[in-house]
Write a protein that binds this DNA or RNA. Structure first.
Lengths: 223, 223
DNA sequence: ACAATAGTGTCTCTTAGACATTATATT
DNA sequence: AATATAATGTCTAAGAGACACTATTGT
């Protein structure tokens, strides 16, 4: 076999919902290239490591244990000049995590709208990750991945509001998610959100698909 | 930077519809490893080549000029032992082409149901490609990529029948596709399909998304 | 004439979307 | 008591699914 050799990295688009905004975990680069600029967390794939394993390891190194976090491969990026050090292919991954009380080790949660320009081609990877998350909320139950183990329907609705920048009708939303078998499992407990009537608590059910899907308003989206 | 080095390849899942069956282009391997076994066409990424460019080149080398063929990245595969020659990462790509009068240079169209075991992890890549194509027919206008430049609604319907193994109602199907703005552009011409009333010819329109989507019957599909 | 395919119309049922009211908590 | 949030019910409109008929070709 003859092929040019590449270094292979994994980069992570770690998304969460904080204060009503979809946020991404960014780290400031400490070493060249792009020192001082914000970038996605990531690292090189090790000798006998598969891609998802490498991404899981990076996630753990950030301080995000893998307890039920959603992690999936996004896409690969290998433009010849994307890294000034040489030929590097990176496999972007998408991770969805609940809003954490404490911020993860290094790095800061940044609203995706304010992420600005990132190092390398990370802005593109981020955009792809955000679009993937937005699309998947339509036809999967993945919104619950942004919620803690137990959550209310309001919390789940706020995820959709943050990710889609829409405000679905609370009553219709409730009807939709509760009528999808296996989406939500009631715990029987209730929790007060400070003021007002306490909401019922749910866990994630076994369902992964949402049928029929919950459609956002589409206006000229990419295929 | 320190990372282990990989050879990087692109592999192609080239799909078409022939005789009512979804078919994939397979080549028999001539050299080890897996000599004599069927495999997806593919090759190594060259020195200053990006991934899609490499996939386009491979497609051209097969004899499939890129005139409007659909080509997209699928996913990357890098299990440590997937290639006995050493560490090889492959980026799977999905190509959708119309049924061609002449078969492409080397390789043979094989119904995906009869593909059997392929070399390397190509069976997995094929399965991912087929599932991607099936899913995309739901919410995009991509079915037209399986049709020639001009086609009838019946031809388009036969694409759905082959890819989904369903038989949508011709009248409902027609209503759906003609009522989606920008999906089909009538040419004003008609064509006879041997017997019966000739059908009207259409071209692909500018629309890429299908809203609302055309839902297939879902029964426990992966997310 | 007959067979085969194309194209159109109607009815029903499900579901999304809009909207008002009642229930239960905190202050 | 006042306020804030949760939960439920009803109406309407749009679209999917089932179905019957007419239209235009080749044999």
């Amino acid at each position: 076999m003859r092929g040019n050799l590449f270094a292979v990295a994994v980069d992570l688009v770690v998304l969460t919902v904080r204060d009503g905004a979809l946020c991404v975990l960014l780290r400031e680069r400490t070493a060249p290239p792009f020192a001082g600029e914000p970038a996605l967390p990531g690292g090189f794939v090790q000798a006998r490591e598969d891609l998802l394993d490498a991404a899981s390891r990076e996630l753990a190194e950030i301080g995000l244990a893998i307890e039920g976090h959603h992690l999936e491969q996004l896409a690969s990026y290998a433009a010849p000049d994307r890294d000034p050090r040489g030929r590097v292919l990176t496999v972007g991954h998408l991770a969805l995590v609940p809003d954490l009380p404490e911020p993860p080790g290094e790095g800061a949660w940044t609203p995706v709208e304010k992420a600005g320009d990132l190092a390398f081609d990370h802005s593109r990877i981020l955009a792809d990750g955000v679009e993937r998350a937005r699309a998947k909320l339509e036809y999967t139950t993945l919104a619950a991945a942004f919620c803690p183990a137990e959550f209310t329907i309001s919390q789940l609705r706020r995820v959709y509001e943050a990710v889609w920048s829409t405000e679905p009708d609370p009553r219709n939303f409730s009807r939709k998610v509760t009528s999808t078998p296996g989406f939500l499992v009631p715990t029987g407990e209730k929790v007060s959100s400070g003021r007002g009537r306490p909401g019922q608590l749910f866990r994630r059910g076994p369902a992964t698909a949402l049928h029929p899907p919950m459609l956002r308003d589409h206006a000229g989206l990419p295929a």
